[in-house]
Simulated assay, not measured.
Amino acid sequence: MRSQDYGDILAGKPKRQIPRLPAEPGLVVEDPASGFCGAVVRIEQGNVVLEDRHGRHRVFPMTDAGFLVDGAPVTLVRPAAAPRKPVMSASGSVKVDNVTARVARASRIWVEGIHDAELVERVWGHDLRVEGIVVEPLDGIDELAARVRRFGPGPQRRLGVLVDHLVDGSKETRIVAGVTHPEVLILGHPYVDIWQAVKPAAVGIPAWPVIPRGESWKDGVCARLGWGDPADGWRRVRAGVTGFRDLETPLISSVERLIDFVGHFG
């Protein structure tokens, strides 16, 4: 007669597995030895700090099966570290850590003046360095068509141009109409000056003053706001801009599109 295998009848019952719970703040546990019941406040040096309903704190070692949750034993463990939130650049893009500036592309972005260039750098500087894009001020666009011809745009040498006051009937719109090239993208914003593309609240004013045609816009603004001369005014404007949220949407949209266009090739 064949014997039947009944297993090791002398072996004890399998050891019960004790759940391991992360000691997240707010988790309510009980210390069975003292009867102290409280919510997890924090972990310090391998111990857990509990707070009871009276606000009293006590410290307990995080031993195996050292606590009860709903009457059942548990082992408290340190919670996993939360994933680090991405750091955002001033333009709202994800900041790339430990990146060195890329070698400059042959492509360029042109802006009308030095203030335009400084403002673009202040907000999009990180993006420009990652992409290897150089921004150059033109000191006006009166000779734009000739400058574009001398630049010699091509598939690996794209050109983006940011123009102030690009609205129907303006001088700027007429100048831009004379430049047509598949590797050149000209965009703009409706503001008379790049200062006006900064939200008034960012510089602590209710609105930008209306300056009559024929009067220097920057001089007129500074006179009406008591900002001294344009150099003083620009320091105020620049200091008020810490990121893209301080700028008007038309400027943001145009700069983002120009960076994408110029950075796609070259």
Rank of each mutant, 00 (worst) to 15 (best):
G214Q: 07
V49T: 06
I252N: 12
A23T: 03
H54C: 03
Q45T: 04
E172G: 11
P86D: 04
I194T: 14
V163I: 15
G188P: 06
S254M: 07
A177P: 11
L225I: 05
D246S: 09
V221F: 01
R235K: 13
G26F: 13
M62A: 11
G169K: 13
V176Q: 09
D246C: 15
G214E: 03
L21R: 13
P182V: 08
F261Y: 12
T63N: 12
G204K: 13
G243K: 10
I133Q: 09
P14T: 08
G169S: 13
P137R: 00
D219I: 02
V74L: 10
I18D: 08
G243H: 07
R105T: 04
V87L: 15
Q156T: 13
V111F: 05
V87C: 07
S216N: 15
G214N: 05
G263E: 00
G132M: 08
V161H: 06
L119C: 04
L187N: 03
S93H: 12
E183P: 02
P25S: 11
P250S: 04
V167N: 15
V262K: 07
V103F: 06
R157T: 01
R105Y: 04
R16E: 11
L187E: 09
L27W: 07
L159A: 04
G46Q: 07
V28I: 15
G154N: 10
P209E: 11
P25R: 09
G169T: 09
L119K: 03
H189S: 14
W217Q: 06
V163G: 01
R257G: 00
A39N: 02
Q196W: 06
I9N: 08
E183I: 00
W227G: 02
L185M: 15
V135G: 02
R16G: 02
G220V: 04
L128V: 03
